[in-house]
């Protein structure tokens, strides 16, 4: 079997979004998530010699990330002394809003739905990895960051119809990959 190699210069471009989506749902705070991700990259660098090349680079980084998230939970809990349960009681300041709040609550997804959607998101990002880098970057810029077609065309120096061909190919590949791996 071919061995996997580590390529730290490519980590950020390849995995940052994936790690971010994985982390944000678990810690719910952008800054904390970013800290954990940098810790993960640094820990990865420092233990590169332990990488045996059996797992994929992504799987290996995720296993480090998981440990970092657990560390974070521990630190967080010990500093507070106890686990905290947050509940949203309607407060009196915005009385009168409560009815709308309740109605809105009904449409809020359950935790399981959210988890499932997050997994779907990770599956999508994993599938995007199989595209070539330029395709994947352009697709992400358009679909996730919502950047204007014109701005992307300028940055990559491509024509609009070129751009749409890239989007088209990316979406076909993505659909195929998702069909295989998710459904």
């Amino acid at each position: 079997m071919e061995k996997n190699h580590l390529n730290p210069e490519k980590w950020v471009d390849r995995y940052a979004d994936y790690l971010f989506n994985y982390t944000i749902v678990r810690v719910n705070d952008r800054e904390v998530a970013n800290d954990i991700i940098s810790e993960t990259f640094l820990a990865g660098l420092n233990s590169m010699k332990n990488f045996k090349g059996e797992a994929s680079e992504r799987t290996w980084l995720i296993s480090i990330l998981k440990r970092k998230i657990i560390d974070y939970y521990r630190r967080n809990n010990s500093s507070k002394g106890q686990a905290e349960v947050k509940m949203n009681f309607p407060n009196s300041d915005n009385e009168g809003d409560w009815l709308e709040e309740k109605v809105a609550d009904l449409s809020v997804m359950t935790a399981e739905d959210q988890m499932e959607n997050r997994e779907l998101g990770l599956a999508i990002l994993e599938c995007l990895d199989q595209l070539n880098e330029k395709q994947a970057t352009i697709f992400k810029m358009k679909t996730i960051d919502g950047i204007d077609t014109e701005a992307i065309c300028n940055e990559f120096n491509i024509s609009p119809s070129n751009f749409w061909v890239i989007i088209h190919r990316a979406r076909i590949a993505l659909a195929k990959c998702l069909e295989k791996n998710w459904f």
Partner: peptide, 12 residues
């Protein structure tokens, strides 16, 4: 596919 992408609510 667009529906799925929306549902996944990807962050970058």
């Amino acid at each position: 596919l667009s529906g799925l992408l929306k549902k996944a609510d990807l962050k970058a």
